[in-house]
Simulated assay, not measured.
Amino acid sequence: KVDLRTVSFDVPPQEILSRDSVTVSVDAVVYFRISNATVAVSNVEDYGRSTRLLAATTLRNVLGTKDLSQILSERESISHIMQSSLDEATDPWGVKVERVEIKDVRLPVQLQRAMAAEAEAAREARAKVIAAEGEQRASKALKQAADIMMDSPAALQLRYLQTLNSIAGEKNSTIVFPIPMEFFHGFIHHPNPPHGDDYDQTIRQQNIHQTPTLKIEP
């Protein structure tokens, strides 16, 4: 009596040396059915056991030609290659291999730690690159703002007043900041105001010896 239904079996974990000399443990599951009961009984002694042994050797042979990165990322293509190879090899036994799936890939603990450290280093490198790009964009924006303010004295004065307003909102007890002497030229009265070069010399001396400040207290 031959069961014609689809049957599945697990391929035990196989220790495999990948093409880049990394030892991994891989297991799989295989789904097959009997396509020709007469051939399955007459051409092979035990079609089930023979298919299991062939699946294990095929798994080792296929994965031995792959790098570790391919084993981890190309499971679907590896499963398809195994299914085609097994189906072709078991056809004379009256067996039809319908599907093969890679279940698990186990890496050595040391390799897992090394890969985790490499991934962490890559993340830190990307974070530094992003931060550097942000600083570069901020520097360009500041330069553009400085160029605009240099071309517009009114904008510079407004920015100055905005900064003072921000400082005043910080609940400081006292704020002292310098004010250019030119602000007071209209309020300074001289009994004998100098003219020409004498006037310029007087203003320069006042700028040197006097530094008026504005003190704001809450």
Rank of each mutant, 00 (worst) to 15 (best):
residue 1 K to C: 15
residue 2 V to D: 02
residue 8 S to M: 07
residue 10 D to G: 03
residue 11 V to P: 10
residue 16 I to E: 12
residue 16 I to D: 05
residue 20 D to P: 05
residue 23 T to M: 12
residue 24 V to I: 13
residue 26 V to I: 12
residue 28 A to C: 06
residue 30 V to S: 00
residue 37 A to D: 12
residue 41 V to N: 09
residue 43 N to E: 15
residue 48 G to N: 10
residue 48 G to P: 02
residue 49 R to K: 13
residue 49 R to D: 05
residue 49 R to P: 02
residue 50 S to C: 07
residue 52 R to K: 15
residue 53 L to F: 02
residue 53 L to H: 06
residue 55 A to R: 00
residue 58 T to Y: 11
residue 64 G to C: 05
residue 64 G to T: 08
residue 65 T to R: 10
residue 65 T to I: 11
residue 66 K to A: 12
residue 74 E to Y: 00
residue 78 I to S: 08
residue 78 I to N: 08
residue 79 S to T: 02
residue 80 H to R: 12
residue 81 I to S: 00
residue 81 I to D: 11
residue 82 M to S: 01
residue 84 S to N: 13
residue 84 S to M: 13
residue 85 S to D: 01
residue 85 S to P: 03
residue 86 L to Q: 03
residue 88 E to H: 06
residue 90 T to M: 09
residue 92 P to L: 14
residue 92 P to Q: 15
residue 94 G to R: 03
residue 95 V to K: 09
residue 99 R to D: 04
residue 100 V to W: 03
residue 102 I to W: 10
residue 105 V to A: 00
residue 106 R to Q: 13
residue 108 P to Q: 05
residue 108 P to R: 04
residue 109 V to Y: 04
residue 111 L to R: 06
residue 112 Q to H: 11
residue 115 M to L: 15
residue 116 A to G: 05
residue 117 A to Q: 14
residue 118 E to K: 04
residue 118 E to R: 11
residue 120 E to F: 06
residue 122 A to Y: 14
residue 127 A to H: 07
residue 133 E to N: 12
residue 136 Q to A: 10
residue 137 R to D: 01
residue 138 A to W: 10
residue 142 L to A: 05
residue 142 L to K: 05
residue 142 L to W: 03
residue 142 L to D: 11
residue 146 A to L: 00
residue 147 D to M: 08
residue 147 D to H: 03
residue 147 D to R: 01
residue 148 I to L: 05
residue 149 M to N: 00
residue 150 M to S: 08
residue 151 D to T: 08
residue 152 S to L: 01
residue 154 A to K: 10
residue 158 L to D: 02
residue 159 R to L: 02
residue 159 R to Y: 13
residue 160 Y to P: 07
residue 160 Y to V: 09
residue 160 Y to G: 00
residue 162 Q to H: 07
residue 166 S to L: 13
residue 167 I to M: 07
residue 168 A to N: 03
residue 169 G to C: 06
residue 170 E to T: 12
residue 171 K to P: 10
residue 172 N to A: 14
residue 175 I to M: 08
residue 176 V to N: 09
residue 180 P to W: 06
residue 180 P to H: 10
residue 184 F to E: 11
residue 186 G to W: 14
residue 188 I to P: 05
residue 188 I to V: 12
residue 193 P to M: 15
residue 196 G to K: 08
residue 196 G to R: 12
residue 197 D to V: 14
residue 198 D to T: 11
residue 199 Y to S: 05
residue 199 Y to G: 01
residue 200 D to C: 09
residue 201 Q to G: 07
residue 201 Q to W: 09
residue 202 T to Q: 15
residue 202 T to A: 15
residue 205 Q to V: 04
residue 205 Q to S: 10
residue 206 Q to W: 15
residue 206 Q to G: 12
residue 207 N to D: 14
residue 207 N to A: 14
residue 213 T to A: 04
residue 213 T to P: 02
residue 214 L to I: 04
residue 214 L to N: 02
residue 216 I to D: 08
